[in-house]
Design a protein around this nucleic acid. Structure first.
Lengths: 210, 210
DNA sequence: ATAAAAAAGGGGAAAAAGCCCCTTGTAGTC
DNA sequence: GACTACAAGGGGCTTTTTCCCCTTTTTTAT
């Protein structure tokens, strides 16, 4: 079965030549070519079949690459996306990678390298070339631990399970109403809207183990 | 011209079998096998011809992987190095990558994946597999060992957010009742008791990104 | 010692989640 | 044509969660 690719790029000449290039290579097939991010979104909403890989130009009118990427990440987090750029734009590229795209390509890439990148993304999930290593050199992992009390941490851990609050209360030897108090306090402190939000927070901050 | 590889590993059995594997594959050739980092350094100092790729075991006596890596980076910054580990050791792996190695491999890797990694490093310079995405906080590959339909996957992703089912239904252009159907089906299939359970399942199975 | 703040408990109501059993339409298969 | 699988939608109900505003008790800091 062929892998399919969507191209999002407002430079029609480039997009079309890329399409020709891809279609001359039997393993891949261009599913669609879009002029901007909005067109891609419309397509995703209207069609069930989505491309294996999206080639996404970063600089575009209407809906730029980052915005499009954010939408895709929200709605289809597993969608594989390769960013396309004209030149090195380090900060944007880092942002794209952090938003979840699987690599980026310069538009003057050699065909060989281009197909190699497709294979990388398709197989291992990521294609990161040397320039990106620069981005890796800046460590910015910092745990912004809000100061939770011991009791709160216990509560969070128990809330990250298939327990009702009543059961959590029992385990902590507290009244359900007290648990409700913990919940409210945490929701406010962390700007949460629901218990799912609390679980996601705990996961993101590695407060729970799996 | 063949690409050459040096293997640095104190587990002789593994190093020798790797050597056999590599030499059976015509494109690559094993230049040397070393028992520890010091031996590699001695070789580099004594010989002009250096391998294209160094496979470097992280846990070693005398001079471990990180120390060896630091030396290589200092003296031969362009040397391509792939780290080898027995298990996932996230922090060390990140450190290796930051020190400049081009990726890492688990020792129980499949031969296909192994050669793919060699090609990645040889061509684009980097091979980064799924586990490394942890460090980048990028979305993970979906492991669909349970066969979920496309629609179910969408539902799961949307359910892993602070959305009510009503909002999920809106996003998917479905009636809340249909969503209720998805929920029930999944709960039964996965033996879940609550939405939190579903979120935890998705997290454990890396179906959602953070 | 005393004031402040954190922890614990509560009433009552609305919203959301969860449950069981049911119908319709569509697509594929035999 | 009959059979199966499945996606979509629904009625009616219970339980759980969420919210807002409140009191009492215990700790902590000045």
């Amino acid at each position: 079965m062929n892998k399919t690719i969507a191209i999002v790029d407002d430079h029609n000449l480039f997009a079309q030549s890329l399409k020709g290039l891809v279609n001359s290579f039997q393993e891949y097939e261009v599913l669609s070519v879009f002029k901007n991010g909005q067109e891609l979104i419309d397509y995703f909403l209207a069609n069930k079949k989505h491309p294996d890989i999206v080639l996404l130009d970063i600089r575009m009118p209407v809906l730029n690459g980052i915005e499009t990427m954010e939408w895709l990440k929200d709605k289809y987090p597993s969608q594989k996306v390769l960013a396309l750029t004209m030149e090195h734009e380090e900060e944007i590229i880092i942002k794209m990678i952090k938003t979840g795209c699987r690599g980026y390509l310069l538009k003057d890439i050699e065909p060989d390298e281009f197909f190699f990148a497709l294979n990388c993304v398709s197989n291992s999930g990521y294609y990161l070339n040397e320039d990106f290593s620069e981005a890796l050199k800046c460590p910015k992992e910092q745990k912004t631990f809000k100061n939770f009390s011991q009791r709160e941490i216990e509560f969070i851990n128990l809330a990250c399970s298939e327990r009702t609050y009543k059961q959590v209360a029992d385990e902590m030897n507290l009244s359900p109403k007290t648990i409700d108090g913990y919940r409210e306090a945490l929701f406010q402190k962390l700007e949460l809207k629901s218990r799912v939000g609390l679980v996601l927070f705990a996961v993101k901050n590695k407060m729970v183990s799996f």
